[in-house]
Design a protein around this nucleic acid. Structure first.
Lengths: 327, 327
DNA sequence: CTGTTAGCGCATTCAG
DNA sequence: CTGAATGCGCTAACAG
């Protein structure tokens, strides 16, 4: 920078002003400085600037695993708007390991990131709170934390569950089965809640015999659907925990000689790549993952830049993706 | 840091020494300093350190799109070893846009990254060379660049093509068809080369009638396989451009009433998630994507730290994944 | 509109 | 084994 200043016959302060478009600089000197910058191929040091301004133009993104398509999409959304706003993002995997999560959080602190997007933290409330206290600002994804202004962005799985069931109901189905996945899944329970809500909203009773849990795999869905159709042959619609389960259900329908969607409608959840590739293609429910990431950084950057939003929580609603396996 | 020094009754220099384990420090003072650091919850500023040492402990990872499973896996491998070595990684998407690639490369330069992993760069040779000149060190993935020491890590698709064909040959098949994908694909051409090499190594002649190009989709594979089986019914093995094409081939075999793998063996390429989920599960060829990322940063960090490796290029070889659709 | 002074928080170099 | 002086490259706060 000193070189630029000397070559342009000005002080380094003026160069700084030109670079940052701050303060008034006469058009003539600004052009002269710009020319020298170009000629010397000068790039300001973000490091030095960071030291002087205490803002680094970086955010940390902490995810369990980028190779998981869900977080990969979130990461893409995050990177996209960060780029648009002139920020760079540090990507950190925790591998579901709390110790590693603490490690990366500490290293991000040392890197002096301006903000943090923390996805599905595995840390306990108190620990998480104390770690977050050391960071300027943070937004949580898929996790809530009571207390001072830690904002969250969460997925409304109950709404998702309601969505798919309502659609089936509106298409005229009255006997619905649900392959509800592992009983331990929190989001799974939310979806069941939504399912039941939709049922009662339509004036239908819940029939426990039509609900069966299963492992969240193709085989799990296959077997569970088989049992369900045996026990309750009147069923004409199958709500599935996720797309893999739905693919299994498709296989079971084929075994039973029941056409999809004519005799049985099948609907999945997640909208993984596979969903569009099977035959018939799956109608399913997708959480807009990229948008989720995008909204999250948006919120974060707004907060960093003082545009205080008073919302403590954003909830993202899943969307129905209509394909061939159901109306 | 000054606080720590004062509290511990030493100079800041001594604090610096204990933090970095450099220079001799008496055990007693080191313990005292460590205690104060812990008590004050002190975290050294990577920014200040970076300004003083000209090393930031960061690397840039530039990919076309993290949401693409291939690059997501690479990213995971990169992050993994970077973490192990104490580095943080900046993730940047180019969205296949050369201008954006230039942008992120510039911003990474301003962030003063210690090194760069650049995947599938879309920049022309000269431009790429000039950009790379401004960076301390860089490793290219899936791209070569003649000239001074720019190292590359590339996938050996020819070997992959040879691998699958050789396996089929060794299983006793002598009449092989190949659904070779789009003629414009570079890696596709490499695989065909490998296929032909394997054929001639086994003393078999190339039969052009048994090769047909297709779009790299399920439908493309379906149609191409159909035509191939019609024209050359003697074929007992199908080598496919990728897993989607192979799934299409599976469908065509079903249409023709030919059992897989008994009457026709089918083999895919890539090992996408779908490959293990279809019936029969696909035998396929996988490039070890995470390992690719891991090896690449490894190479990069070795170079950064002066462990001069004289290899200019690492080539990663795909692996056979044996499942149900072929021996 | 422009320059000066000072310091961001640390590590390097040299003295003790 | 420890400390003092100096500078990394930039910007904030004032002065002109």
């Amino acid at each position: 920078m000193a070189d630029v200043a000397r070559e342009a016959g000005v002080s380094s302060m003026t160069v700084s002003r030109v670079i940052n478009n701050k303060g008034e600089v006469s058009e003539s000197t600004r052009l002269r400085v710009l020319a020298v910058i170009k000629r010397l191929d000068y790039r300001p040091s973000g490091i030095a600037r960071g030291l002087a301004t205490r803002r680094t133009g970086t955010v940390g993104l902490v995810v369990p695993d980028v190779a998981n398509p869900f977080f990969a999409d979130v990461a893409r959304g995050v990177e996209q708007v960060a780029y648009a706003k002139g920020y760079n993002v540090f990507l950190c995997n925790t591998e579901e390991n709390p110790q590693r999560e603490l490690d990366v959080l500490q290293s991000l602190e040392e890197k002096r990131v301006d903000g943090l997007v923390l996805c599905s933290s595995r840390l306990e409330d108190d620990l998480l709170r104390s770690v977050l206290d050391r960071h300027p600002t943070a937004v949580l994804v898929n996790r809530r934390l009571e207390g001072e202004g830690v904002r969250s962005v969460v997925v409304d799985d109950e709404a998702g569950g309601r969505l798919v069931t309502t659609m089936l109901l509106e298409a005229g189905h009255t006997a619905l089965g649900i392959l509800s996945g592992p009983t331990t899944s929190h989001s799974g329970r939310e979806r069941i809640k939504g399912h039941l809500l939709a049922l009662s909203a339509a004036g239908l009773e819940d029939n426990p015999r039509r609900q069966v849990s299963c492992t969240p795999t193709v085989d799990g869905g296959h077997e569970a659907a088989h049992l369900l159709m045996l026990a309750s042959p009147e069923i004409t619609g199958l709500v599935c925990y996720n797309d893999l389960v739905a693919v299994g259900a498709l296989q079971a329908c084929a075994d039973h000689g029941r056409g999809v969607p004519d005799q049985v409608a099948v609907v999945g959840y997640d909208d993984i790549q596979l969903a569009a590739l099977v035959t018939p293609a799956l109608t399913t429910c997708r959480v807009p993952r990229m948008a989720l990431g995008a909204q999250t950084v948006q919120l974060l950057l707004d907060q960093i830049n003082g545009c205080a939003l008073d919302c403590a929580e954003i909830v993202v609603t899943p969307q129905l993706v209509r394909r061939a396996s159901a109306p």
